[in-house]
Design a binder for these strands. Structure first.
Length: 732
DNA sequence: GTCAGCCAAATTTTT
DNA sequence: TTTGGCTGAC
């Protein structure tokens, strides 16, 4: 491995005006990272420590004074991060020959170029999450397993396997019926993907890693092309991504990774925190730079967040500090229920707005999306405008996917998912029966569905179906002629010739959105054509299928922002509220919570807290409605980890946050005490059972009891006279 | 081919 | 409570 590890870099940091520019306004550790050139570099960058600044400066420095721009590769996780980074780099060093992109788009691009070596068709389709879902369902059906039982497990299991670079065969070696069955579904799913010439998101990484691993020529070539590799958010990389980076950098060893293990919150998507924790071990002679000065938050916020994260065992020790003000104390609000929690926040916001804050200064974070509803209602009735950072991705909208379906079929005739999507969109008399006949024909002949469609007169279909299919194949053939032209033109034609435009126009009055979206798509294509004159229809499809949500999550847009704790990563707001610090919710528990999971939840809480610049308010309620049942809630263990003397405890219920009394009245306490969770009961018909939960439903008390037969039964408390409390000793 | 009505399920979701 | 997916009836 090439090791030339210098802070006194051969580039003479202060020699040229350009270099001096790159180092302006940087602290010592930041400079060290920027001027590091050859060899491995680990940049442990705490929250709000100016990480992006360092990355962009270093990239510009490398591109202008150390090597040529096209030898630099900067990888991010999101398109948004990639775009931002690219912009900032270009501002420092003109020219856009540098590769700044996401892992997925890098892999998509490279796999297209090296499709032969990777054993892939050149025109593969990238299947998105909802297509993937359909295909996995098909795989389950093909094995004649129950979709309801296996779909979910297969979806997570297959993704997990691909992220860990496990093939179906390797997975089948695993012990256990469950795993073995998922491995079979995985194998069937791979078959179906191949039939469709499709790759899912996980495949982009997995296949790329396999290619680099098995093809020395390609690996060496890419290593030579990308002589300086930089990876952001390295704590979120999975096994495949680790492998890709490792193999590209193998010859030169010039790999810089940045990240913060304390902000690793995506292990459930395959991210492996050990990638960053063992980076120093994996890359000898690594230089490590820590950025611990925080420019975002007040001293008090940092100290509170720091106390919580310090509870995690086995983390790299790191203490954020700041020269910012002491600030106002962090507050913990105890509320009676979600409604009063929301109203307390609304009042707080209102009074701060009177003092000159703007609505855009506020953000409210919660653990699960369902918790936004009560907040929305309160904000709405208070007349405060808000937005939720969770838009459906533009490219996931039905009308958009329909249009893209036409283009996908034009480009990839094997894309059966797309074909099924458009074959009767808009309705043209090709219904379920006809499609099933075509499918059966395709299966008998071992051909694609499109081929079957083209051979409609051999399928033994009725006259009406044949006529419809004739019109449809004519349409496809007309469109086919456009595949080589501009994207904009192809979309225009697909829209009008398919009849979609007419259909959208008709329903415009009822719902103008779809037509507007379609037009928006045409505009986007036009823009793309202009910006990339060389690009093909296939390129555009690749580009769009890798775009996520619209990046609406901008810092300040004049409204209060609501989002999940996960969505908050990377953002900052002057005033932050984190709600629902209750047992089972933060940390979120399904059945049992392992230590690792608890630590990840703690990191999630930490991420939330460190978004706050000036004011941080944490809330919890004594009652919370979960799935239609109002249940008693207990404070989160994380609240106990807050440094008591630095917190302003604000108990709106006047009973202490552990109190059992509630705003709902004294009588509830009596009832609830009798029916504590875990209490054993006996019923004349159902035998012995155990109280699983209790709460209020439709204003009345309810307990849920699980009986020996494994069934759970709810009881309205006032009718629960058949339930008799028994002691443990009585039942053994 | 469409639509109402029923049942089951319910974290988080960078691509 | 809310949502999505599926089924069976027009």
């Amino acid at each position: 491995m090439a090791i030339l590890n210098m802070s006194e870099a051969p580039t003479q940091p202060d020699a040229s005006p350009g270099v001096r520019e790159f180092l302006r306004d940087l602290t010592e550790p930041q400079r060290e990272a920027v001027t590091h050139t050859d060899g491995a570099l680990l940049l442990l960058a705490g929250a709000g420590s100016g990480k992006t600044r360092v990355i962009t400066r270093r990239a510009a420095h490398l591109a202008t004074t150390v090597t040529r721009p096209w030898h630099v590769l900067a990888i991010t996780f999101t398109n948004k991060a990639a775009n931002e980074m690219k912009e900032r780099i270009v501002a420092l060093s003109p020219g856009d020959d540098m590769t700044v992109c996401t892992f997925h788009s890098l892999c998509a691009r490279l796999l297209r170029i090296h499709h032969d070596a990777a054993g892939l068709p050149p025109n593969f389709t990238i299947v998105d999450q909802s297509d993937r879902r359909k295909l996995i369902k098909q795989a389950v059906e093909r094995l004649e397993l129950a979709v309801d039982n296996w779909r979910r497990a297969a979806e997570t299991g297959i993704s997990r396997a691909k992220n860990a670079m496990e093939t179906p065969a390797e997975m089948a070696d695993a012990a256990g019926f469950q795993e073995k069955t998922i491995a079979r579904i995985y194998a069937a799913y791979e078959e179906i993907l191949a039939e469709n010439a499709g790759l899912d998101f996980d495949d982009l990484l997995f296949k790329m890693a396999l290619l680099l691993q098995s093809n020395e020529e390609v690996r060496a070539k890419l290593g030579d092309r990308f002589r300086y590799v930089m990876i952001d958010e390295y704590q979120d990389t999975n096994a495949a991504q680790y492998r890709i980076a490792n193999l590209i950098a193998r010859d030169h060893g010039n790999i810089m990774v940045t990240g913060d293990p304390d902000q690793s919150i995506y292990s459930w998507r395959g991210a492996d925190i050990t990638n960053i924790l063992s980076f120093e071990h994996d890359y000898p002679n690594v230089k490590t730079v820590r950025l611990e000065q925080n420019y975002r938050s007040t001293k008090r916020i940092l100290s509170v967040a720091g106390a919580v994260i310090a509870e995690n065992i086995g983390r790299k020790d790191k203490t954020l500090w700041t020269e910012n003000d002491e600030g106002t104390p962090v507050r913990v609000l105890t509320c009676s229920d979600a409604r009063s929690e929301a109203e307390a926040i609304v009042k707080d916001i209102e009074s701060l707005v009177v003092q000159g804050r703007r609505p855009g200064d506020f953000a409210i974070f919660y653990r699960i999306n369902a918790m936004s509803r009560v907040l929305e209602e309160s904000l709405f009735s208070a007349g405060i405008s808000y937005r939720i950072a969770r838009g459906t991705a533009f490219y996931a909208r039905k009308e958009i996917k329909d249009i893209l379906g036409y283009l996908r079929v034009m480009v990839n005739p094997a894309d059966t998912v797309a074909l099924e999507r458009i074959i009767n969109t808009p309705p043209r008399g090709i219904g379920k029966t006809t499609i099933n006949t075509l499918k059966a024909f395709a299966e008998r002949q071992g051909c694609t569905l499109l081929t079957a469609v083209m051979r409609y007169d051999e399928c033994g279909l009725g006259k009406r179906a044949v006529n419809s299919l004739k019109a449809f194949t004519d349409l496809l053939q007309t469109l086919q002629l456009l595949a080589g032209g501009s994207t904009r033109h192809a979309i225009d034609q697909a829209l009008s010739l398919s009849g979609m435009l007419a259909q959208l126009g008709e329903q415009q009055e009822a719902n103008p959105e779809p037509l507007a979206n379609a037009n928006e798509l045409v505009n986007a294509a036009e823009e793309y054509d202009t910006a990339n004159p060389e690009a093909t229809l296939l390129d555009w499809l690749t580009f769009t299928s890798l775009l996520g949500d619209e990046d609406i999550i901008e810092g300040d847009s004049g409204t209060v922002t609501l989002m999940t704790l996960h969505a908050a990563k990377g953002l900052e707001f002057p005033c932050v509220y984190i709600i629902g610090l209750e047992r089972g919710l933060v940390p979120l528990v399904r059945d049992v919570l392992s230590i690792d999971e608890e630590e990840e939840e703690r990191r999630l809480f930490f991420v939330g807290m460190t978004r706050a610049m000036q004011r941080l308010t944490i809330t919890h309620a004594l009652w919370r409605m979960v799935r239609g049942v109002t249940q008693r809630a207990t404070r989160s263990v994380f609240l106990d980890e807050l440094p008591d003397d630095e917190i302003e405890w604000d108990d709106r219920c006047g009973v202490g946050s552990n109190g059992s009394r509630s705003a709902h009245g004294e009588h509830l306490r009596e009832d609830l005490h009798l029916w504590e969770v875990g209490t054993l009961v006996r019923h004349p018909d159902h035998g012995i059972g155990q109280v699983m939960s209790m709460g209020r439903r439709a204003g009345r008390m309810q307990v849920i009891v699980r009986f020996e037969d494994g069934r759970e039964r709810p009881w309205m408390l006032e009718f629960a006279s058949d339930l008799e409390r028994v002691d443990f000793d009585d039942v053994g």
